[in-house]
């Protein structure tokens, strides 16, 4: 497994999101963080098990943790940006303390607040390593994906073996391709209904 961020390739969020959605065939819940994270999730093809956030920046992982605790038999993924996670780093300790075996946090790291003007994050300027933070927070299964092949391998491991898992991917500056419709009540209702169905 890749240990350090500088050795990782720069990948594309939309392409990796499609790989994730393609692998989620058993009713996995996917929480898309604000902005591009959930636009690319929408763009990868809508599933009722997807939840598309609006403005509560940083809460993808906590929402996913709530779903994971409520339904230990269902795999739950949070797709979150680096700027968002930086706003809520404490959630990594909470996840480590609860240690939900079914939780997967995918971190998209482009070093910038892409959707609000592309300003660099303080983490990027400082060289902050989010995967090192996740491990130091107590999440042992936290790894950078060196390339798409390793991303696939880490995802397969996360979908099959006990977690919690954190997968980090360096991504490019390509904007989200499709904007998720702003229909929060519809998505909350459909997600709730999907969560009431048995895990496939």
């Amino acid at each position: 497994m890749t240990e350090t961020r500088p050795n990782t390739q720069v990948m594309n969020r939309a392409a990796l999101t499609r790989r994730i959605v393609g692998r989620c065939t058993r009713g996995e819940a996917i929480i898309g963080g604000i902005g591009n994270s959930n636009w690319d999730l929408w763009g990868a093809g809508h599933r009722e098990e997807n939840f598309y956030m609006l403005g509560s920046m940083g809460l993808a992982a906590p929402i996913a943790l709530g779903v994971a605790l409520a339904q230990p038999q269902r795999r739950v993924l949070a797709l979150e940006g680096d700027g968002s996670l930086l706003m809520q780093l404490g959630c990594l300790s909470t996840i480590a303390a609860r240690a939900p075996r079914n939780l997967i946090l995918v971190l998209w790291d482009n070093g910038s607040y892409q959707i609000t003007g592309g300003q660099g994050t303080p983490a990027a300027r400082a060289g902050t390593d989010f995967i090192a933070i996740a491990r130091a927070s107590g999440i042992a299964k936290a790894h950078w994906a060196a390339d798409e092949a390793e991303f696939d391998a880490l995802l397969a491991e996360a979908l099959g073996a006990d977690g919690p898992h954190v997968i980090g991917a360096r991504i490019d500056q390509a904007p989200g391709r499709d904007q998720t419709p702003r229909e929060p009540v519809r998505f909350a209702m459909s997600f709730t209904a999907a969560m009431a169905r048995p895990v496939g």
């Binding site: 819940a29 929402i63 409520a70 909470t94 609860r98």
Partner: peptide
């Protein structure tokens, strides 16, 4: 299932996820 979190926003996110998933 009662446990400490680092920040109140986090608790709101957890409760929101839980209630949508039936808890």
């Amino acid at each position: 299932t009662a446990f400490p979190v680092a920040r109140e926003e986090e608790a709101v996110g957890i409760v929101a996820g839980g209630v949508m998933a039936g808890m």
